[in-house]
């Protein structure tokens, strides 16, 4: 039953792929290799390694490894700083009054503009890319956390006061959990933005990673390779997003259910 329903839901995907395959074979346009050729190249590039390494090739390790490490490190760093600062600012009207204009300005700067700046400041390499990612994606986390911490239900806070919660308890048991739905919204935005900045930084700095592979494939007329990179980046974006939604669903189960019943 489920399989039939899935076919009913997904039928357009194979249809599109087949149509794409036929169209590209008929057109014989070099920029648009048939999906089958792209798939073959993807297998050759990344999935023809020894079984002991799950078939991953050397190239797969060097393409994905550093990219993913930078992505997660930058995202985690931005999350920690953004949430900590956001809770502090959100809990104090005074502090948020002082910082509001600066935060508005900071988040309005188009993050890719920072790529050349940090590359010039920190020289080529991982620190510059990390700095770009952290500085570029921290704003949605910060702004959402501030908003979440500021709009905690008054009765939640009064209950904490009545029962004499300590400051730490108030933060960890009341304010942060209450702000969690908004924090997660910020973290998800930040994750997709991080992937974009990672690619820009890698392409721009030309120092390895998937973004670099993408551009060098394009420059050396390896169009199937280029499409392969595009597909993999799409898959990566899709997987990250799905994994994050799964996490969110687990952590915020109370939120979804509480909203459904009230």
């Amino acid at each position: 039953m489920n399989a039939i329903r899935a076919v009913g839901r997904l039928w357009l995907v194979p249809v599109t792929l087949v149509a794409w395959e036929i169209a590209t074979r008929v057109a014989e346009q070099p920029f648009f290799p048939p999906p089958s050729a792209t798939l073959v190249r993807m297998g050759e590039m990344w999935l023809s390694g020894p079984p002991s390494r799950l078939l991953l090739t050397e190239q797969a390790m060097s393409d994905f490894g550093p990219s993913l490490a930078r992505l997660f490190a930058g995202w985690a760093l931005a999350a920690v700083i953004g949430v900590a600062a956001g809770v502090a600012i959100g809990c104090s009207t005074r502090l948020s009054d002082y910082l509001d204009p600066l935060i508005h300005l900071g988040r309005a700067v188009p993050p890719p503009l920072l790529v050349p700046f940090f590359l010039a400041l920190l020289k080529l390499g991982t620190p510059a890319q990390l700095a770009t990612i952290v500085f570029g994606i921290i704003w949605p986390i910060l702004v959402n956390t501030i908003d979440g911490a500021r709009t905690v239900d008054r009765q939640h806070l009064e209950t904490a006061r009545i029962f004499g919660f300590s400051t730490v308890q108030r933060l960890t048991r009341v304010i942060v959990p209450a702000a969690m739905p908004k924090i997660f919204a910020g973290l998800r935005l930040a994750l997709s933005l991080a992937l974009i900045l990672l690619i820009v930084a890698e392409i721009f700095a030309g120092s390895g990673g998937l973004g670099y592979r993408l551009l060098s494939a394009q420059r050396t007329y390896l169009y199937a390779d280029m499409w392969g990179c595009l597909v993999v980046l799409g898959l990566l974006g899709y997987l990250l997003n799905s994994a994050f939604l799964l996490l969110e669903r687990r952590v915020l189960a109370w939120h979804r259910n509480a909203r459904q019943t009230t």
């Binding site: 839901r9 997709s192 392409i203 973004g211 394009q218 974006g237 899709y238």
Partner: peptide
């Protein structure tokens, strides 16, 4: 909408700047 949704769900999370090299060709 139901038919197109899986396509949208796959295309949307593609980091948009990745299409820049393709656009350069076109």
């Amino acid at each position: 909408e139901r038919a197109v949704r899986p396509l949208i769900e796959f295309l949307r999370p593609i980091p948009s700047v990745a299409v820049v090299p393709l656009a350069i060709l076109l």
